[in-house]
Design a protein around this nucleic acid. Structure first.
Length: 425
RNA sequence: GUGGGCGUAGCUCAGUCGGUUAGAGCACCAGGUUGUGGUCCUGGGGGUCGGGGGUUCGAAUCCCCUCGCCCACCCCA
């Protein structure tokens, strides 16, 4: 096939059967968001580049699709959160808080392709703005599991891993970062790679004299060791008993228990996320078999609005992509069969009957039916075969006799039974 | 970015020690005379064998280059 006829690498065409799957998934995203009382928002896919550029060495910023037009530097959004933050900021004074917003957006990232990563993907984004309590995290995590349940993902097929950057930050400030608090964000970006590049490589990056963190080697090793902890009490040992992060995480698990999902969430200090703006809770969900990349991820970013020049407004949110979850459902054999849905086919034998057929189709459509009108003067045999294949329930036949008697012949394609339906005048 | 595998019809593939007009199944289209589908029968359209160059009397087949896809690694949300 000619190269120009293919979509650019990492992008997808959606044929009807593929779009049905996507729409099915999106419908569940929306249904859960609606059920949780969230309102849908949208924003342009093209934004000013500076909305996304931060200086913490994040890949997401280095992989921007960007360009310059008439002196303006623009970029395709790599994620939705900054755009929503911009929208929140513009109405910060009048927005009833907490605001619960969700979005279903296509995001762009210029990166090398592997399984589960494309240059374009859709993401379901849910955010709570203006709620400092960890009840917001619990609600969002509850929504994620509500979605997985709706999609038919077995209860034990996905687990959420969760930690707190605040816990990490307080621990580090009491220790290796006591005099260099500004190194915290870049440090998070580095240690997010632990799972992917290994402990030794992370220590190398943390101690890199050219890097942004520049820890001493024993200090770096100490950080990596801490990231191996899986128990909240041990991880919080360096902190006061009433330290906020520690108490909040304990509280969160109480709420998650009430949502009935506490057993599906585990504390894991190695979860830090690769984005610089997170300040508190961070979480990611994975397939239990660990065959795939993270299914979704999110966290608290209480200072993002200030970073963009707005007021202090706490926020929590998550992004849930379409690619990994569909791969998981495929692997689990949980993708439903989604045939085309068509109620009726209306067929005029010839142009003499066509006006009557058009009026009949209009009547049925007015009643909410999905109706395909046969456009050619085809043979009846062909019409029935096509209608059958298309999944239509009924065929309305409008021939000379039917027009004469003012009644269409209705054939039920499943049973073969025929009845009559008055033609509209 | 590195290594490996693969590109032949819309799809899945066969064909390759170089040799007439390149094949199958599925799909598609048309017939099987009157206004009745899923089956069946018959027929048909469709391929610059990913692209370019080379070797040769002759290339889908051999060589070089290039593009694309897949897997692993590398890199990383």
């Amino acid at each position: 096939m000619a190269q120009k006829l293919q979509p650019p690498r990492g992008t997808r065409d959606f044929y009807p059967e593929e779009l049905r799957v996507r729409s099915w998934l999106f419908a569940h995203f929306r249904a859960v968001a609606d059920g949780f009382g969230f309102e849908e928002v949208d924003a342009p896919v093209v934004e000013h580049e500076e909305l996304f550029t931060r200086k913490a060495g994040e890949e997401i910023v280095e992989q921007l699709y960007h360009f310059e037009l008439h002196g303006r530097r623009l970029a395709l959004r790599p994620e939705m959160t900054p755009s929503i933050a911009r929208m929140v900021m513009a109405r910060a004074g009048s927005l009833p808080l907490p605001a619960r917003w969700f979005a279903l957006t296509q995001n762009w990232r210029y990166e090398r392709m592997t399984r589960g990563r494309r240059r374009e993907h859709y993401q379901w984004n849910m955010d709570v703005w203006g709620e400092p309590r960890i009840t917001a995290e619990a609600e969002l995590i509850g929504a994620i599991f509500a979605l997985l349940d709706r999609l038919g993902v077995p209860r034990d097929a996905v687990r959420m891993r969760l930690s707190s950057r605040a816990l990490l930050e307080e621990t580090l400030r009491a220790g290796v970062l006591a005099r260099r608090p500004e190194a915290f964000a870049p440090l998070c970006v580095v240690i997010d790679k632990l799972d992917k590049i290994g402990a030794d490589a992370v220590v190398d990056l943390l101690t890199d004299p050219q890097g942004k963190v520049q820890l001493a080697r024993p200090d770096a090793q100490q950080v990596v060791d801490w990231l191996g902890l899986r128990d909240l009490e041990t991880a919080a040992e360096g902190l006061a008993a009433d330290a906020a992060p520690r108490a909040q995480l304990a509280e969160l698990f109480d709420w998650l228990d009430a949502y009935g999902v506490a057993d599906r969430v585990e504390f894991d200090t190695s979860i830090v996320r690769g984005l610089a703006y997170y300040t508190g809770t961070v979480f990611e969900a994975f397939d239990t078999a660990r065959n795939l990349r993270a299914i979704c991820g999110g966290g608290r970013y209480d200072r993002l609005l200030q970073t963009l020049g707005g007021p202090a407004l706490p926020a929590v949110g998550f992004g849930f992509g379409d690619v990994v979850i569909l791969e998981l459902l495929q692997d689990l054999g949980s993708l439903p069969e989604l045939p085309r849905e068509l109620d009726a086919v209306v067929f005029a034998f010839g142009d003499a009957e066509r006006p009557a057929a058009i009026r009949l189709a209009a009547q049925l459509r007015g009643a909410g039916e999905r109706v395909e009108l046969v456009l050619a003067n085809a043979k009846l045999k062909r019409v029935l075969a096509d209608a059958s294949r298309s999944g239509a329930l009924r065929v309305y036949l409008v021939g000379p006799d039917e027009v004469t008697h003012g009644e269409a012949l209705v054939r039920d394609l499943a049973s073969g039974e025929q009845s009559r339906h008055p033609l509209p005048v």
